[in-house]
Structure formats: structure tokens, C-alpha cells
Write a protein that binds this DNA or RNA. Structure first.
Lengths: 344, 344
DNA sequence: CTGAAAGCGCTTACAG
DNA sequence: CTGAAAGCGCTTACAG
């Protein structure tokens, strides 16, 4: 039998109203009374029943994050860093984080529906935004607040964080080229992913600017897993004219590329250059350490959570767009001359 | 304005009771009525308000998992596989999973208290059990159901899963010895961790059985991170009489050991053997691939979730202990003669 | 500043 | 088989 607000009130011989107001810090309770209430509540181990409060306030004080079915592995390092950031920010603001993963697109839709209909969450954080994204249309149609990492092209306004790596991608291509590599290939993700579209755009822009020619079949679409990166790289290396620089849409794919290159008897950094994107922790421990464009994943997640809470709070949200620029981390996987060595 | 049970009842001109009973599948509603109720409810997009149901039923239908503060990284692969398994099992049974992580021991205690007092969860899943574990005493004292991976020595009964790797550890030591290594060291975890205690015990038992002498300072306690493994291995290799076989308490520490060995100019598998424990996915992609004792982490998590739900269901739980035996995966990190090559 | 009372949306004994 | 009613534990207009 957990303590209820009634127990606390009875103990102090005051009304439940006073207890409630005192604990929520309203100023219509005498200072002295509040003190006594807080002390007694703590001593009795009282915490408001969540369900009752939610029912009454018509708020769940919970945020949902559903790992898109598009990603095969729940445990992609990217997601764990992301979830970690969300969890930190939310719990520090007394919100809960409900996480789930869907195997299929259908299951994913059902999850959104269920969480929306049963009022389990007050809002959602989205990720892996697609150019046309049913989640965006669905949520905005139902009037459910959400924020996202990436902007869809559905013509719907919402607060978001986006990454701009145009300049840094140019730096990367320059760096790799200076290290003696010239046949650039790009191992990308699903073609409708905003991430993929942006990163490929930067790749094209940078290689063009550097006077590099990129054959059509040097641009490959994968599922962004290390297996995908492995298979794409194997195929490239087995072609008649293999590339000598492989830039990947994310670090996971790049790990697979490293593996394939080694298996092919190539020394990464000398015979071939490989680079990733995201800057997940393991990129530093890869063999050889992976050059990557580092984005502060957990920090982005924290900012997204903050944006969403502000949206919910009814206070006007000033900033509706946050732009993040990555940091180029040059490591051994793209050549010997490592100049910027400021690494953790 | 989401649809309520009242809306559905009004639409059909029946009482809310009938709607409620029909949707929950009780047999005191006419078949024909039930059909109509279900159809209408679906059409109207009705889902029971979670908070109301919880308040009435006095159940949260939610399970809590708090990542122990003892682990520095939220995103240890072990945890993500574990959480993934929990999530799958629970969501398939219509339960939610509430996950959080605590930075400090104090914050961890507070989280447990808060979730217990505010009835946010019906039970907990525990992990990284210590020999004397306040979580075990606390939860059992409050009568909160829980299950755990590992058995504490507090003399408290609870359903748990434990790992028994005595035989397999012997196989591992045999295998490494046969490959020509003889100076065994053990890189372990915090000394009060049940995991650590068991694994060290198996290590001692196996090395003794194989007639190997293990100096006192060859057994090191770390925080089980790759950094910890790296530092411990560096120290060992810089000692006057370095070991040539390093068995680690988990794969993460082993990754650090690989790194340190390479940095020391050693070829892993030839000059030195390294092995891990857990069999996380990345162990296969390490350079060289890591020999490890593979335990089915996600599967264990699924079983734990199942055990807990059974405990909550009031049906008697028959099985109160599940024993898991790991599978030895011999790979290149412990020598060239890889015999059992059945790898995914 | 404080108290008595209504109501959030369900579920379920209690009558019929 | 169905309906009217109570109550889970809160929060908050409404009186005083």
C-alpha cells in the first residue's frame, strides 16, 4: 500500500488541496505549511500516483521514440547514443522516455497509432526522416507534437535539427585527395532518406569542386549496416576498375568497408582510403582508426528533447531550426599524414 | 479529443460496461454484440486511455530497467542487445518498457524509489548483480516483483537467470594452451560483481586443471570498458614478465586488450592470445576476430521478461532458475588453428 | 490562505 | 446478458 496524498493530509490534519499545492510549489500556501508538508511527504515516502495525475492533467509526461523499422539493428551505436541523450534530458526534466522498436513498417504504424490513441505519450521524437515521411503527415494531421532530426519535404512545418556538412565534406575530400587517392566511391543508404540525400549531395559537390570524376556505378545504395558496407565494398573491389577512396554514409557501413578491404589484401590508409560519418565512439577503436565527420549525437538528441518540451510547454518556441556542423576527424584510415590530431 | 469508451457506447446505444467487457474478450457479452463493438471501436480509432485503466486496475503494465550506474557507457553493446530483447518480449505481451540510466549510485537509488513510489512500474529487471546488492534487498523489502541476471548472496529468493561456463572455460583454456600459450592473465571487473566472481572462479579452476601457474599480479580488476582493458593490458605488457594469453571478463575489455597488444607491436594470435566473454556482435568484426564465450544476450533478456510477467500474473512460477551455458567461439585472436569454424 | 467537491476515463461488483 | 453507479488518486475551479 503506497502512501497517497490523503495519508499525508490526514497526518498533518490539513486538506489534500493544501498538500497538493504545497508540493507543486504554488505560492498560495503559507511558507511554514509548505515546509511541513514537504518534510512529512518525504518522510512518508510519498510520490504522486502517476496514473492519477496523468488522468487528471490529461498529460502523459512521457515522450515516445520509436526506432524506425528501416534500421535492422536495434543496437546500432548511433541509436544507443541518441537514446542516451534523450533519456538524460528528459529524466532531468521529470519526463519519461518510452522506447520501442518495430520490425516492419506496419508494426511501426500500429505503434504510433496505439501510443497516440491511448494517450501514452505527449509527443514524439523522430529520426531517419525520409523525403516523404508518413510519420510527419500522420502526426501533424492528428495534432500530436513532434520534433525531428531532419526535415522532410512534405511541406509541413515542425521544429527540427539538421546537419550541414557541405564545407566539412569538401575538407574531407580535399584531405583524402592530398593523401594521394583519386578514384572516389560513395557507399550510401536508402535513396529516400534525407540523410542519404544530403550526404550524397555534399559528396557530389565536393568531388566536383576537387575536379574528380565519379563513375555512375561508384555510387551504391545500401542499408547502412556494416554488412551492407562490406558487400558494397567487396563488389567495388572486384570490379575491373576498383576505386581507391571509399566514403561511406555512416560509420557502420565504413566498418564493413574496412573489413572488406582487409580481406581483399589491401592496407587501409595506404592502398585505399576509407571514411565514415557520425563519429560514433567505436570509430576510434577501428583498425585502422576511422576518419569520420563527427556529429555530437547525444547532444543533438538532448537538444531535440529540449525543443519538444518547449513546444509542449505552450511557451512560444523561438528557434524552430537548429543547424549542426560536424567536425572532421582525420585518422589513419585515410592516409598517413594525420594533421589534426586533437582526438580524445 | 480522442475517442473514449463512452463515445463508442453512445454510438452503439449500449452501456460502457458492455463495450469494456466486449473489448476485453469476456464471454458475458453476446457474440454478435462483441463483433459490433470491436468493429465500431476500430473504426472510431478507440484505444483505452492508459492512465485511466492503470488507475483503476492499480497496475502500470510497465516494466522498469535501470542501467546500473556502475557501467560508464549507456551504449555498451551488451546493454543494447539486452534492452532490445526486453523490449521485444514485453511489447509482444502488451507491456511497456521504461528505461533509464543513472550516473551515480545516489541517482540510481532515487530512480528506483521514484518509480516504486509513483507506481510507474509493476516490476524490475536487474542486471550486473553484486554479491551484496542493495537493489535486491530494497525491492524485496518493498514487495516489488523483480527478476535478475545473476543471483546475489543476500539470502533473498527471487527468479533469476545465471550463466554456468565452468566446462566451457576449461575448453577455452585448453584451446589456448594447445595453441602454444602458457602465461595466462585475467582482466576482470569490479570485485563485488557476481559476473566477475564467477568468471574469475572458472578461470582459476581451468588454469589449475591445465597445470598452469597464475601469478597474483596477473589478475587485474578493471571497470570492464575497452579503456580499462587497454590500460590493464598495457601495464601487463610493460611488466618484466609479460603474459602471452589474456582472458578478459567481457568482450569490451578484450577490445581494449587487442588495441594495447597491437600498439605494443605484438601480432595477436601469434605472439599473444586474447579472448573475451559475451559474444557481442562486434567480436566477429574485431581485428583479428575475437575468440569469446558466446551467451545469447537478447534471448536471456527475453526469458527474464517472461519470468517477470509470469510472476506478476499470479500464476505460480514453476521455474525459478534458468541456467545458460555459453558457446565457445574460437577465432583468430587465440591462434591460427581455428577448428570450430561454425560462425555466423 | 484553506476546505469540500467535482471529475479525468476507465473497470467491475451489484442489481436486474 | 445488460445498465447505473462507485471509485481508483489525483488536481483545481469554487466558496469561504
Amino acid at each position: 500500500m503506497p502512501t497517497t496524498i490523503r495519508d499525508v493530509a490526514k497526518k498533518l490534519n490539513i486538506s489534500v488541496y493544501t498538500v497538493s499545492r504545497a508540493l507543486d510549489g504554488y505560492d498560495d500556501v503559507a511558507e511554514q505549511t509548505r515546509e511541513r508538508v514537504i518534510q512529512t511527504a518525504n518522510k512518508m515516502g510519498y510520490a504522486p500516483n502517476r496514473a492519477a495525475r496523468q488522468l487528471r492533467r490529461q498529460k502523459a509526461e512521457t515522450i515516445g521514440f520509436i526506432i524506425p523499422s528501416i534500421s535492422k539493428r536495434f543496437n546500432e551505436p548511433f541509436f544507443t547514443e541518441f537514446v542516451s541523450g534523450l533519456g538524460e534530458e528528459l529524466s532531468s526534466r521529470n519526463f519519461d522516455l518510452l522506447v520501442s522498436n518495430a520490425k516492419t513498417d506496419d508494426a511501426e504504424r500500429q505503434l504510433y497509432h496505439r501510443w497516440v490513441n491511448s494517450r501514452k505519450v505527449d509527443g514524439f521524437i523522430l529520426n531517419r526522416i525520409r523525403r516523404h515521411d508518413w510519420r510527419v503527415s500522420f502526426l501533424s494531421q492528428w495534432g500530436i507534437p513532434f520534433v525531428a532530426l531532419g526535415k522532410s519535404e512534405d511541406g509541413i512545418e515542425y521544429p527540427y535539427v539538421r546537419i550541414d556538412a557541405a564545407d566539412e565534406y569538401l575538407d574531407l575530400v580535399n584531405h583524402v585527395q592530398k593523401n594521394g587517392f583519386s578514384q572516389f566511391a560513395f557507399i550510401g543508404g536508402p535513396t529516400d532518406l534525407v540523410n542519404q540525400i544530403d550526404r550524397l549531395k555534399w559528396f557530389r559537390f565536393a568531388t566536383k569542386k576537387c575536379g574528380l570524376e565519379v563513375p555512375r556505378d561508384y555510387i551504391i545504395s545500401t542499408d547502412m549496416t556494416s554488412r551492407g558496407g562490406y558487400e558494397a565494398t567487396s563488389a567495388l573491389l572486384n570490379s575491373r576498375t576498383p576505386p581507391d577512396a571509399i566514403l561511406c554514409v555512416n560509420d557502420e557501413a565504413a566498418f564493413g568497408a574496412l573489413h572488406a578491404a582487409r580481406e581483399h589484401g589491401l592496407t587501409v590508409g595506404t592502398d585505399i582510403a576509407v571514411a565514415g560519418f557520425d563519429g560514433i565512439q567505436d570509430s576510434l577503436h577501428a583498425e585502422p582508426p576511422l576518419t569520420t565527420l563527427d556529429i555530437p549525437v547525444a547532444d543533438i538528441a538532448r537538444q531535440l528533447a529540449g525543443m519538444l518540451l518547449e513546444t509542449l510547454s505552450e511557451r512560444p518556441l523561438e528557434l524552430t531550426e537548429i543547424v549542426i556542423r560536424p567536425k572532421l576527424l582525420t585518422r589513419a584510415s585515410t592516409g598517413k599524414q594525420v594533421n589534426r590530431s586533437v582526438d580524445q
